[in-house]
């Protein structure tokens, strides 16, 4: 029921004819959809268990676009865009330049269009050609394992997974459990929420419960947010979503050298991808991450596929590619079985 309500809330500002057709979808489809995509002149689609599905005007779902599919025309896209911005594009200008519009309930609309670049920086997006409505949903209890591991170790934790695998949801739930003292003692946590996705802050109000001991820095660039947190909020733990560049890694190192622990998420679909990405190598090179939780993928959001414990030797040469991740792992079988495997480096 909660997921159906989340779906209906997320589509609440769409152009009325689109909204009506989407509201007619069956309950299980509403509950399972993680995204609604509008592309100019194209069929309206949903993401269901990681697969695209198309919506017909009568509110049915088909897996191949056919006649009778709901089409996102010029007016539908323009009116949806304006309504998603509360008819106040100017108020969302900074977020739009970053490619998204935050919505009530922690949902988010990704915006595709033509970039307006000023002095090398994207200052705006014009000619909106697509909207990707990402439906935020809670997965209660999904953070228990990560929070438990965090409470049991002294170091930091990384959550890695491909897009749509539920990294942010898992991070949010882990923060809530640790901050509210549901796993061990209360942790003083600062969440640096650059894209307002973790706390879903809207007009200064978080849309998600992050626990009673969490400070939320909304809209701060991650590097600046980490430094601000260190200077003024004295956190024990800093949570960051989607570490992506060298400046963010440098700020994280600054925090680590100040005695703060981190919970971070990184885009990486496998241990190989993680080790190949410069940001993955840089993070592992800090030597701070005692556990890496690899998520399974968009078909099972929030589910942990593998838990990796970086080998000490991995930290000695952060450029050593796969050698970095010749790690001891606990791999998961399909139905609750766990398989311990020890790899030789």
């Amino acid at each position: 029921m909660a997921n159906i309500a989340a779906f209906e809330q997320a589509i609440g500002r769409l152009y009325q004819p689109l909204r009506s057709a989407l509201m007619r979808l069956p309950g299980p489809v509403k509950a399972g959809a993680t995204e609604v995509r509008l592309r100019l002149g194209g069929p309206v689609s949903l993401t269901l268990r990681g697969r695209p599905a198309f919506v017909t005007e009568s509110g049915r779902v088909v897996y191949t676009p056919t006649e009778g599919c709901l089409i996102a025309g010029d007016q539908a896209l323009y009116e949806s865009f304006r309504a998603l911005c509360e008819y106040s594009v100017h108020s969302h200008q900074r977020a739009i330049a970053q490619g998204f519009i935050p919505l009530p309930g922690g949902h988010r609309a990704g915006v595709a269009g033509a970039a307006v670049v000023e002095q090398g920086v994207v200052s705006n997006v014009r000619d909106i050609a697509g909207i990707n409505l990402r439906i935020a949903r809670a997965l209660p209890g999904c953070g228990g394992e990560v929070a438990g591991a965090f409470a049991a170790i002294k170091g930091s934790i990384m959550l890695a997974g491909p897009p749509g695998s539920g990294k942010t949801t898992l991070l949010r739930e882990t923060v809530r459990l640790l901050s509210s003292g549901q796993v061990g003692e209360h942790h003083l946590i600062t969440v640096v929420d650059e894209r307002c996705e973790i706390g879903g802050s809207l007009s200064g109000r978080p849309q998600f419960d992050l626990g009673c001991c969490t400070d939320l820095l909304s809209g701060y660039p991650k590097a600046a947010g980490v430094l601000t947190a260190l200077r003024v909020l004295s956190p024990q733990v800093i949570a960051l979503d989607e570490i992506g560049d060298a400046a963010e890694c440098a700020a994280l190192s600054e925090g680590l050298n100040s005695g703060v622990r981190f919970i971070v998420t990184v885009h990486a679909g496998s241990r190989e991808e993680l080790s190949r990405r410069p940001v993955g190598r840089a993070l592992l090179g800090t030597g701070a991450f005692e556990r890496i939780f690899l998520l399974s993928g968009p078909e099972n959001p929030g589910r942990i596929k593998e838990v990796i414990t970086p080998h000490e030797a991995a930290y000695q040469d952060p450029r050593a590619d796969l050698a970095l991740l010749q790690l001891r792992s606990v791999r998961r079988g399909p139905i609750g079985h766990t398989v311990q495997s020890r790899r030789q480096s």
């Binding site: 304006r82 911005c85 509360e86 008819y87 106040s88 594009v89 100017h90 200008q93 705006n124």
Partner: peptide, 10 residues
């Protein structure tokens, strides 16, 4: 036109 453009546009 109100609310339909960026700050400069407004």
């Amino acid at each position: 036109f109100l609310g339909g453009s960026d700050i400069e546009g407004q």
